[in-house]
C-alpha cells in the first residue's frame, strides 16, 4: 500500500551531491595550476578515508551500505575538508580530520541529514585546534621566491614526512595571505604597506585569489543548475562586503578592503559550498538570510579580531548552532492564515 503521488521528479540526493562535487572542479583546477598537484593527493586521501569511514559507521549502525555510500555525501565532505587544509599536510592529518568529521560529526548524530554541524567544518576545526602547527604550512604559490617541490618529493613529504635535504619546510610554505595580514597588522604595519608584500596579488593573495574565483565560477554553475538558491551566497558575500567596506572606509590603514575578504581564505568556498549545505542550514528563506548575514558577520569578526586567521569554518559551526532557533523564528505565513500563524 503506497500513498500518492505515484510519479516523482527526476532528482536524487546522489545526483545533487555529485553536481556539487562537479562544481568544485574549476576551483581545484586553479589550485593545481598555482600550487601544484599536491592537493589532488589530499583529495584522493580524503575521498578514500571518507568512504571507508562511512562504510564502517554504516556497518556499526546496522544500515545498508549501498544507498548511503552512493549518495556521494561522504565524498563531498572529504573534498571540502581536503580543500580547507594545507595541501602539503601529512597524510595522517587528512585521515584524522576526515574520519572525525564523518564518524563523530555525521554518524554519531544520526548520519545523512541529521548532522547539525557541517562534518567537513567539524573536521577542520578539530584539526586546527589539535594540530595548529601543521595547519599553518600552506604552500607558496608558484612564481614566488622559494622552492617548488617536485610531485614525488611532495608525495614523499606527505607520506613519510621527509623533505629533500636541500630545503626546509619554512622555505616551501608560507602563512596564508590572511594570516600574514593579521601578523603584520599586529606588528603595527599599515594595510597598504602589507599589501605591497610579494605574496599579495591584485585582489588578495597571489594564487589564492584565482582559486577563490574558480570556486565562484563553480558556484555560479550551481546557481544556474538550481542546486542552491541565490539567497545564501548573495547575502553572505553582500554582508561581508558591507561590513568590511564600512570599516575599510573609516580606517583604511587597519582594515583591509572588502574585495580582499571576498577573494582570500575560504570566503568563496563558504559562500557557495559550505553555507549552502542544506543539512546544517536553515530551511526558510528568511532564515537563510539571517544565517548568511550572521555567518558573514562572524567571518569578518573572527578574521579581524579572533585567534585564528580565517573565520569561515567557525562561522559555519557557530551559525549551525543557531539554526533551530532561526527556523522557529522565521516560519513563513501559511496559505489562508494571517501573518501571526493564527
Amino acid at each position: 500500500m503506497w500513498s500518492s503521488p505515484f510519479i516523482s521528479a527526476p532528482a536524487s540526493v546522489s545526483q545533487i551531491m555529485l553536481r556539487v562535487i562537479f562544481a568544485m572542479v574549476p576551483g581545484i583546477a586553479m589550485y593545481v595550476w598555482f600550487f601544484g598537484p599536491a592537493i589532488l593527493v589530499s583529495i584522493t586521501l580524503a575521498s578514500i578515508t571518507a568512504l571507508a569511514t562511512e562504510a564502517l559507521m554504516l556497518k556499526l549502525r546496522n544500515r545498508p551500505l549501498k544507498p548511503f555510500l552512493t549518495d556521494n555525501s561522504a565524498l563531498l565532505t572529504g573534498w571540502l575538508l581536503a580543500l580547507s587544509i594545507p595541501a602539503l599536510a601529512p597524510w595522517w592529518l587528512v585521515v584524522v580530520g576526515t574520519a572525525f568529521g564523518i564518524a563523530v560529526a555525521k554518524h554519531l548524530y544520526g548520519g545523512l541529514g541529521n548532522n547539525p554541524f557541517n562534518p567537513a567544518m567539524v573536521g577542520y576545526a578539530v584539526l586546527i585546534i589539535s594540530f595548529p602547527a601543521h595547519m599553518t604550512h600552506w604552500l607558496t604559490p608558484h612564481g614566488l621566491e622559494g622552492i617548488v617541490l617536485s610531485f614525488p618529493d611532495q608525495l614523499n613529504y606527505i607520506f613519510h614526512g621527509i623533505l629533500p635535504a636541500s630545503t626546509t619546510l619554512d622555505a616551501l610554505t608560507t602563512a596564508t595571505p590572511l594570516d600574514t595580514l593579521k601578523t603584520q597588522l599586529h606588528l603595527g604595519l599599515p594595510v597598504n604597506e602589507i599589501r605591497d608584500m610579494p605574496i599579495y596579488g591584485h585582489l588578495a593573495g597571489k594564487g589564492t585569489e584565482m582559486v577563490a574565483i574558480g570556486f565562484g565560477l563553480g558556484g555560479l554553475y550551481m546557481l544556474y543548475a538550481r542546486i542552491i538558491s541565490w539567497h545564501t551566497p548573495v547575502i553572505y558575500l553582500g554582508t561581508l562586503f558591507a561590513i568590511a567596506g564600512l570599516f575599510h572606509l573609516v580606517d583604511p590603514a587597519s582594515y583591509v578592503a572588502p574585495t580582499f575578504h571576498w577573494f582570500s581564505g575560504a570566503a568563496m568556498l563558504g559562500a557557495f559550498f559550505i553555507f549552502t549545505d542544506p543539512v546544517g542550514g536553515p530551511t526558510t528563506i528568511k532564515g537563510r538570510v539571517i544565517y548568511s548575514a550572521g555567518a558573514a558577520l562572524l567571518t569578518w569578526l573572527i578574521r579581524s579580531y579572533g585567534g585564528f586567521p580565517d573565520g569561515v569554518a567557525f562561522a559555519a559551526l557557530l551559525m549551525n548552532i543557531c539554526v533551530p532557533l532561526i527556523d522557529t523564528w522565521t516560519q513563513p505565513k501559511v496559505f489562508g492564515r494571517k501573518g501571526d500563524g493564527k
Binding site: 584524522v96 563523530v104 554519531l108 578539530v126 585546534i129 589539535s130 594540530f131 595548529p132
Partner: peptide, 22 residues
Amino acid sequence: YHGFLIAILPPGAFIGLGLLIA
C-alpha cells in the same frame, strides 16, 4: 605521540562524556 589536543581541550570533555553515556 603527536598529541591530539582536542581531547584535552573542553570539546574533548563533551565528546568523551557523550561516548561514555552512549
